[in-house]
Design a protein around this nucleic acid. Sequence first.
DNA 1: CGGCTGACTCTGG
DNA 2: TCCAGAGCCAGCC
Length: 106
Amino acid sequence: MDHKPTYRDLIYEIVKCIPSGRVASYGQIARMVRRCTARMVGFAMASTPENENIPWQRVINSQGKISPHGAGFGSALQRQLLEEEGVIFNEENIVDFDQFGWKPLD
DNA sequence: CGGCTGACTCTGG
DNA sequence: TCCAGAGCCAGCC
C-alpha cells in the first residue's frame, strides 16, 4: 500500500469493485484508468497476489469469453468460479454482457 | 539506461 | 464471416 502505488494497484481496486455474479472486460477496466491499456489490465491480472481478495475471475475479454492464460486449466477454474457466482456461459463459452456485464452505476 | 514482454482491442482484407 | 497485423503503455531484466 503504499507510498508508490502502481497502475496495477489501481486496476486491482477497480476489479475489487466488481460485485459477485457480474463480469467486466479488460477494455472496460482499461478505460476507467487513464494511461492504461487493455494489455496492462491483463498483465495486472496475471500478477494478482493471492494474499489479496481480488476477483480476477470476473475480468474477461471484450468478446465475453475467457482468454487462455498460459496453461489452460486456469481458464477452466475461472469459468467454474463464475458459474458458482451465477454467471451463465452459453455453448460458445461466452458470457452475455447484457445480463452479467458490470456497470459502475450498478 | 535500453529493450522485450503481455490473461487485449481495433481495423482492414 | 473469419483471419491477420499493428497499436498501446507500464513493468521487469
